[in-house]
Amino acid sequence: MCENHVINTLFTDFQSNMDREQEIREVIRNICKDVGQISREATTVLQVIHHNEAGINPACLKARELFEKAREGYARLTEALPPNDYYKYQEHWRNMTQRYCFLIALTIWLETGILATHETVAEVLGISALERKTGFHLDIEDYLNGLLQLCSELSRLAVNSVTRGDFEKPMQISKFVMELNAGFRLLNLKNDHLRKRFDVLKYDVKKIEEVVYDLSIRGLRPKPEPVVEG
């Protein structure tokens, strides 16, 4: 029956397309596994900032080295990805990319005390910041998610700096995170994953403000002139 033949071709074509897709997924998954491993290494390296002031600079240098490696990984990923299909396979690298945004923003903040822009982060990873019809880029939502992770990490750093006897860093962190907080309020967030992550920010802000408050009422706050670092 002719109808049967048409239907059969229909399904075999679809199945072969699905198989091809599976192969691409497999390649992408493997690359992401490698690059993800590097991100975990960088996370571990940067943990030193919480207990050792002197370790911060070497940690940043080491992290930079790892970002170089990640950059190679992203280049491989760009190559493996069919140009039209960024959002088809995005779930594979989404978490990892958010993690990198956080790590890069943290490193840059530790080095210079300023906020890394979307373009800067994309450049460190060797990918485009522009959302185009084809090719690989750094999604704006992933970048923002990375910044929210940065705020959580900094709230921890504020507490640990005080423990270490550094009363200036919490002030610097407080100013920085408040600025970010004000910035996030400009965004029109829908009820999605970014919004959920954003809802955590107020607890980070609260934690930092409590540190500042504790320092203030005990007169430990570096008073005379506002300290400008970096």
């Binding site: 600025e179 910035g183 400009l186």
Partner: peptide, 14 residues
């Protein structure tokens, strides 16, 4: 502030 500029840009994109 430059931070707010970054976020204004992000808000536009979103």
């Amino acid at each position: 502030s430059p931070v707010l500029a970054i976020f204004k840009d992000a808000a536009r994109k979103l």
